[in-house]
């Protein structure tokens, strides 16, 4: 994979070892299932989404981004009783857009990362609710306060998580 360039500035493209690329999503899927058993309120966190965004903006390749989001989302769906593909579709879109956006803007600063996660969390929820209500016919109720709070918490956790995951980046 070559370093890609934007029109104005050079944008770093990173890759990850196989262990990280496979291990980190598996680890967060486990944590996502295990943590709410002990602390129910932490269901509001969506760690797989954060990892999807992180890999997407680091690799900066839309196809890889959507593929990562698709696989993580499908795995997440498999743990629920809902139809498989709801999270898959939502995270595919997020992965694609995040990697596309990662090429265009600076996503290395905590501030921009915070904003990015905040927006993508809400987008993810909109897609998720849209599919669940429109296709799966599940009567989910959208609570703005709850969603905005979730976006805020996920963004804060995401910024910290991204700083930790930055250690595993390997420059191409």
């Amino acid at each position: 994979m070559n370093t890609s360039y934007t029109s104005r500035e050079q944008v770093e493209v990173y890759r990850f070892s196989w262990g990280v690329a496979v291990g980190v999503p598996l680890l967060v899927l486990f944590l996502q299932g295990f943590i709410p058993v002990r602390v129910s309120a932490l269901r509001i966190l969506d760690l797989p989404l954060l990892v999807t965004i992180f890999f997407a903006i680091s690799r900066r390749n839309p196809i890889t981004g959507l593929g990562t989001g698709c696989l993580i989302g499908l795995a997440q769906d498999a743990l629920t009783q809902h139809p498989i593909g709801v999270n898959g579709i939502a995270k595919t879109v997020v992965g694609f857009l995040a990697s596309s956006l990662g090429v265009k803007i600076d996503v290395e600063q905590p501030g921009s990362r915070f904003l990015l996660i905040y927006v993508f969390y809400l987008l993810h929820q909109v897609i998720y609710f849209g599919i669940m209500r429109g296709l799966a016919n599940e009567p989910l109720i959208w609570h703005w306060g709850h969603q905005l709070l979730g976006a805020l918490l996920d963004s804060l956790i995401g910024v910290v998580l991204f700083m930790f995951l930055d250690r595993f980046k390997q420059r191409v």
Partner: peptide
């Protein structure tokens, strides 16, 4: 439009996959 096409294909595949699971 390679990227957009692949996105559309992947999404379409998942939507069809969903449609085969969901029962009304």
């Amino acid at each position: 439009h390679k990227n957009a096409t692949i996105l559309a294909v992947v999404l379409m595949a998942q939507i069809l996959g969903l449609a085969t699971q969901i029962r009304r």
